[in-house]
């Protein structure tokens, strides 16, 4: 399965299992979404469960909240990272805090899913990585898978969560990775990172499409005799401090790889964790291998902005040699 198919499969399993799940968004119903993640689901479950909404992100999320408060479990789709912002007000002012404001009387079992990230030569506003904005909102959980297997297991958990989940899908690898994924239902816990490779010299933390780039960098590092521990964060918030801390205590070095601008980012949070939890173990300054603090350039300039295996290796080596 690809990531697209794995998410489709997870949605399919949950739609079959729970009559209260509804799915909607722009082009999400009849066409199955511009990336075909929801393809075939309207046919199978009917247009009152899987449907196209009018074109308005704030309305998609705001109505989703209403549904979640009244017995449904909506899984709404926003078409692209750069078009989630019209819904930002609903997310920060309502979705995230209804449970708290009602002192637990109302839960918000909803998933807001959207493709994110660059590297596909897209138009303006189609290549952004806004995970830090959303992870910064108390009351919201943010999940980002990097493989088809994880995409399925995490999506099942996201739909079953009684807290609102932002589920960001790395569009660059939507179809690039094929993997055997079990047909049956399984779930992967939200809030748990995964150690993809064990190592002793440096901890590299990444997520989403950057995992694949890091794996390529690891090959280069190995040739250079550097032993890298690679961690796939999988959930941005709640962030898995324990896995990060244990690894940094062992390696004494941390390099974070992500697509978003460097400043005020998930990278900044991870460095804070390394400092707060493993300060005395650090042997080199933590390093963020992330985008410039600029707007994501259009296609012609994007190669400067995106993290490549070579750049990741360069920073790994500098950190180890520090």
């Amino acid at each position: 399965m690809t990531i697209v198919q794995a998410i489709n499969n997870a949605l399919d399993i949950k739609l079959a299992e729970d009559k209260n799940i509804v799915i909607y968004g722009e082009d999400t119903g009849f066409e199955g979404g511009v990336f075909r993640v929801t393809e075939g689901l309207q046919k199978k479950y009917g247009a009152d469960r899987v449907f196209d909404s009018p074109l308005a992100e704030s309305a998609i999320v705001g109505t989703g909240l209403g549904m979640a408060l009244s017995g449904l479990r909506p899984v709404v789709e926003l078409q692209f990272d750069g078009f989630t912002y019209p819904a930002f007000d609903q997310i920060i002012s309502h979705v995230s805090r209804m449970h708290n404001r009602t002192r637990g009387k109302y839960k918000v079992p909803m998933v807001i899913r959207f493709p994110y990230g660059g590297g596909i030569n897209a138009l303006e506003h189609h290549s952004e990585s806004p995970e830090a904005f959303y992870a910064h909102i108390p009351g919201i959980k943010v999940v980002i898978p990097s493989t088809p297997h994880d995409a399925k297991g995490l999506m099942i958990s996201a739909i079953e969560s009684d807290d609102p989940i932002i589920f960001m899908e790395p569009k660059r690898i939507y179809r690039a990775i094929k993997q055997e994924v079990a047909d049956d239902k399984f779930s992967i816990p939200i809030g748990k990172a995964k150690v993809l490779a064990e190592g002793t010299d440096v901890t590299v933390v990444a997520f989403g499409a950057m995992i694949r780039e890091c794996q390529k960098a690891l090959v280069m590092a190995k040739e250079a005799g550097i032993s890298v521990e690679l961690i796939d964060l999988r959930t941005i918030y709640p962030i898995d401090k324990e896995t990060i801390t244990r690894s940094v205590e062992k390696t004494g070095r941390i390099v974070i790889v992500a697509e978003a601008p460097t400043g005020f980012s998930v990278g900044a949070e991870l460095i804070a964790i390394a400092n707060e939890e493993a300060f005395l173990h650090l042997e080199a300054p933590p390093k963020r291998v992330m985008g410039f603090d600029t707007i994501v350039p259009l296609a012609r300039g994007e190669h400067f902005f995106m993290q490549t295996p070579e750049k990741i290796f360069y920073e790994i080596e500098r950190t180890v040699k520090f």
């Binding site: 303006e124 506003h125 350039p297 259009l298 296609a299 012609r300 300039g301």
Partner: peptide
Amino acid sequence: MGNEEGSNFKNANHMLPFSVPIG
């Protein structure tokens, strides 16, 4: 072609760049 220079519109007075975020 993916170059921001295309939004500069050197000879067009009083015109904003294309707006992708609908509305």
